[in-house]
């Protein structure tokens, strides 16, 4: 979740940006990773997000809601990444077809998780963002909708269609 790390680390540096980075970078990086599926890309997105917000720190309407601004920025940057990577994603999807299937009924093995993870990679960037925000950030459909700039009904639909697509993908892999 995009939550603040506790004490200790926050006092390590003096400046405001440093404080915010140490408080929120972990959560932002995890979110970016879940949205992109690529650690290095996630790190880049977190840096980009902080650079974007750094110049606006003094002018944020609600500085106390920095985490919300950061979350929105990370989601937007991740979606931009996905749009750029559409071709790669299609390629990745084709690659998945070559991977052997494993059962997911138990949902506990590493293979099952990787299957699910790969299924996520096949989602559209909006579906993926909706699922990550809903199930990882534990946001309400209304909050997801606000970040994705859509109606709550659309956010709900993105989640359910995304899950359905993942199920379909997994069934396909299972043969």
């Amino acid at each position: 979740m995009l939550s603040a790390r506790t004490e200790g680390a926050t006092t390590a540096t003096g400046g405001r940006l440093e404080d915010l980075y140490l408080r929120y970078a972990d959560g932002a990086a995890r979110l970016a990773y879940l949205l992109t599926g690529d650690r290095q890309v996630a790190e880049d997105i977190v840096q980009d997000a902080f650079v974007k917000l750094a110049g606006r720190l003094a002018h944020l309407r609600d500085p106390g809601a920095f985490d919300a601004y950061l979350r929105r920025t990370v989601v937007n940057l991740s979606r931009s990444y996905w749009r750029r990577k559409k071709v790669e994603r299609a390629y990745l999807k084709r690659e998945q077809g070559a991977i052997g299937s494993e059962g997911v009924a138990g949902g506990s093995s590493i293979e099952d998780r990787e299957l699910l993870w790969r299924a996520m990679a096949g989602l559209t960037e909006r579906q993926r963002a909706a699922i990550v925000l809903r199930f990882y950030e534990d946001l309400s459909e209304a909050d997801v909708a606000e970040i994705l700039r859509c109606r709550p009904g659309t956010a709900k639909s993105l989640v359910s269609r995304g899950l359905e697509a993942m199920r379909h993908e997994i069934r396909g892999e299972q043969g």
């Binding site: 140490l22 650079v51 998780r113 699922i131």
Partner: peptide, 30 residues
């Protein structure tokens, strides 16, 4: 399915290393 996805996301998120210091490249860009 919801629980599986939720657990998957938490597990995957934990794979990200902690950020213990501000990267010099970030300071430079900011």
């Amino acid at each position: 399915m919801h629980d599986e996805v939720r657990q998957l996301l938490r597990d995957k998120a934990s794979e990200m290393p902690p950020h213990l210091d501000v990267p010099p490249s970030l300071r430079k860009r900011v």
